[in-house]
Design a protein around this nucleic acid. Sequence first.
DNA 1: CGATTCTTTGAAAACAGTCAATCTGTGTGG
DNA 2: CCACACAGATTGACTGTTTTCAAAGAATCG
Lengths: 191, 191
Amino acid sequence: MFTIFQNYLQSKASFTSEQLEMINAVSVIKKLRKNQYLLQEGDVWRYNAFVCQGCLRTYSIDEKGLEHVLNFAVENWWIGDRESLLNGTPSRFNIDAIEDSIVLLITKENFDMLTSKLPQLNDLVNLILQRSFVASQNRINSNISHTAEEKYKAFIEKYGPISLRLPQHMIASYLGITPETLSRVRKQLKK
Amino acid sequence: MFTIFQNYLQSKASFTSEQLEMINAVSVIKKLRKNQYLLQEGDVWRYNAFVCQGCLRTYSIDEKGLEHVLNFAVENWWIGDRESLLNGTPSRFNIDAIEDSIVLLITKENFDMLTSKLPQLNDLVNLILQRSFVASQNRINSNISHTAEEKYKAFIEKYGPISLRLPQHMIASYLGITPETLSRVRKQLKK
DNA sequence: CGATTCTTTGAAAACAGTCAATCTGTGTGG
DNA sequence: CCACACAGATTGACTGTTTTCAAAGAATCG
């Protein structure tokens, strides 16, 4: 599993084997069964987490008990609750595995140590943050501009083959529509 | 106007007067009349911009010619198009002044020079980026979870007195609803 | 195979959007 | 200073979309 992470790192920047060893030394592998929590609402999130294998989701639960999917993450994506990590506050979100998954965890303290010693890693993380921000701005733009059908098409476009791994009711939740509406949208599009 | 920016910087981190001078040296003040563009769709955005005075908005225009407000920014907020800045691509957004405004501009090149020489500034910018990301994630969560009325109440809650400076049709656009719907929501809430 | 979860479908109700008209306030030019 | 134009906000009637509730199929898992 370290190999997957190392391949990812090498594809994004250049690291010596000593540096990779340093990263390995503070990385912890965690296996998750389908439906298993990685983070539960109320807990504080203290890691940087990289998905080696599988698929996870971040979601909130509203007053009525309804789930709202904020993000998905598959192999080679990062996942976590940045708000909780940044402020040390209890998380308002849950993260769980949609498939059996393997994630690589590095505690905030260790990660900060790594980024201070490895400028390439620091730059990489910063770039990812910028891209994440841009992506979420674009998602907001899509949310306020488009109808259910347009949002679904844009989602399929953006997620490609990954979308086939996601239950429809979770995609509906991600788009902010009901599963019934998504089912009808799909029926429309089949023609 | 530099004073406003310096006060802001000092309130967030500690800078020597030489360092502030270095920042001043690459800062450009730009005055904007109400309705004047700061950025037009198709142009490349090359700055980091700080609002000293006034109020601006970032918005897109869809195929039907409708405007969709992505963000507002008032005094002591940063504004710009990070996607265009990061990738050097033509912007898909417009930024214009809602009130007569004054912004402080620093080109990307100069800003990178500053952050490489001033770690406090680098940390500050990184913190802002993280907070911006968290804020936009929360906005997405609100978008997919709430009705028009709930979104409007959350908006007023979050923007406080600033909301009084914004035309209603722009708030409606920000929330992804029509001006008529917002007007009716407000009528409801008056009781 | 039986149980559970997910998806689809139907009908009715709630909600938001569209179009058109009116009202309000602001600012400009005569 | 008034009159007028203009942009923004409100209202009403109507349309269309999405949700809700309920039930029936399909798929998945132990």
